[in-house]
Nucleic acid binder design. Structure first.
Lengths: 252, 252
DNA sequence: GTTACACATTGATATATATCAATGATTATG
DNA sequence: CATAATCATTGATATATATCAATGTGTAAC
């Protein structure tokens, strides 16, 4: 599959004199769980470009582009993927409000993935050089950045377990649980949320065939564990889902 | 499988008046590829506890232990793994000279894995608090730490691709190539090296059955791509190995 | 409103790899 | 030195999931 549509062109949302500040936003994991003081948040605020809108299907970044900023998702959702030489897509992750995009590009100073909006979304832009300078001063910011990265490492390791050792049903269950947890952590409903990505994205991400994903979803409904109506997921039996995701012995 | 043997007890190697300095050691990725000045390296040196020996089978850390330091591998090798509730082992990674252990524990301040010496090895210990303080002062050190973590994120993503999308032969080839590259980057031979881990470790890490790994090794020899004599690997046809690891289309 | 196109579901079949089983080789233990 | 224990190899069989194929459904295009 080739690149669809035109290259991204990020459009600044009209601010309409509504000056939203980081203090009230409380969404990015960079500010919130950390112990930044008000004045520290203010300094962070100064370097952040706030509330940029990205239309559905547009790119936040593309492979090969120079890395300059991190993005914090404000609303909407994104998928990241790589393209192999043969042109096949490898979905590497999904991003939801409160999450940081671009951490993996720090080391090479170049983006290694395509990041595409799954719906019309908005992000804050964090120029990395300035962020880095600031973190020299602010111990808690430095700590928080390392923490976020370390956290990502842990998440990746978990995903690794999932993909290498779990069967299809376990992967699907773990995927839904992970989404549920991420939404919960950011103050959204953990019981009911939207799958903004396609079945094909999910299948690709989980290393499964799209037909397998479809069948698994059907089965989860039959077993009355989750209810999935097209895009809308409702988790009915959370415990059963956990059990399904965790059980790695019986299946082997 | 339960925990084998006793808990680690790290023994200080007799220094024998040989004061090895980081300046001459040049092994850790923390110091070397970075642009630290001599005086900066000296400051780093002051906080590092050098050359601790770890016997084969002993633990560098265990799940649940408090995170206090990172370790830089000097010699030997380690494996990291988790234990599920049911007691089965999940090998999460291998560590060789020059590589840093413990980055994933930063976020939770607690070790989430067991790290076990595959052979008698030695490490340098980097107290994290002091390292963090120092990185507030030294911009390049800060940069280097983020770079290392970002790099790990990239590596993990690659591994993720490998485990979710590649078949057994591709995984095995990619595993050997990745080892080869890592050894090369640290100045060791890329053509010939030791598999210090068991077949079972490899199989577990790659999400394959041990028998499959064995068969693949046999096949790689038959095809005259690599020569594996018990633990010793010799890469004969590097190009063929790359081709094998990369091909993800033909197999699907 | 009709046509086209991406997305999703369901069934039949093929295949890669796990599992089971037997044996050999190497390393540790008394 | 003998015996056990771990690790590795090889073959036969079972099974989970990919692939192929057909159909349905919703959304965009004209």
């Amino acid at each position: 599959m080739a690149l669809d549509q035109s290259v991204s062109k990020i459009v600044k949302v009209e601010s309409l004199h509504v000056k939203v500040s980081c203090q009230t936003c409380s969404i990015s994991q960079l500010c919130i769980p950390s112990s930044l003081t008000d004045s520290e948040v203010s300094r962070l605020e100064e370097i952040i470009h706030r509330e940029t809108s990205v239309q559905k299907g547009k790119f936040l970044c593309q492979t090969g582009e120079k890395f300059q900023s991190l993005w914090a998702v404000n609303s909407g959702s994104f998928k990241s993927y790589t393209l192999s030489e043969d042109g096949d897509i490898n979905v590497t992750g999904f991003y939801f409000p409160g999450e940081l995009i671009g951490l993996d590009a720090i080391s090479s100073s170049t983006h290694r993935t395509f990041v595409k909006a799954l719906e019309t979304s908005s992000v804050c832009t964090l120029p990395f050089d300035k962020l880095d300078d600031l973190s020299g001063d602010i111990r808690n910011l430095r700590k928080q950045m390392l923490k976020i990265m370390s956290n990502e490492l842990m998440d990746d390791q978990e995903l690794l377990m999932l993909l290498s050792r779990k069967n299809a049903a376990e992967r699907m269950a773990a995927f839904l649980l992970s989404l549920s947890l991420r939404f919960k952590q950011r103050g959204f409903s953990e019981k009911s949320f939207n799958l903004t990505m396609t079945r094909s994205d999910i299948a690709n991400y989980l290393g499964l065939a799209i037909e397998t994903v479809s069948r698994l979803i059907t089965k989860l409904q039959k077993d009355e564990i989750v209810n999935i109506n097209d895009k809308l997921v409702e988790i009915i039996d959370h415990k059963a889902l956990i059990k399904l995701a965790g059980a790695s012995c019986e299946a082997h």
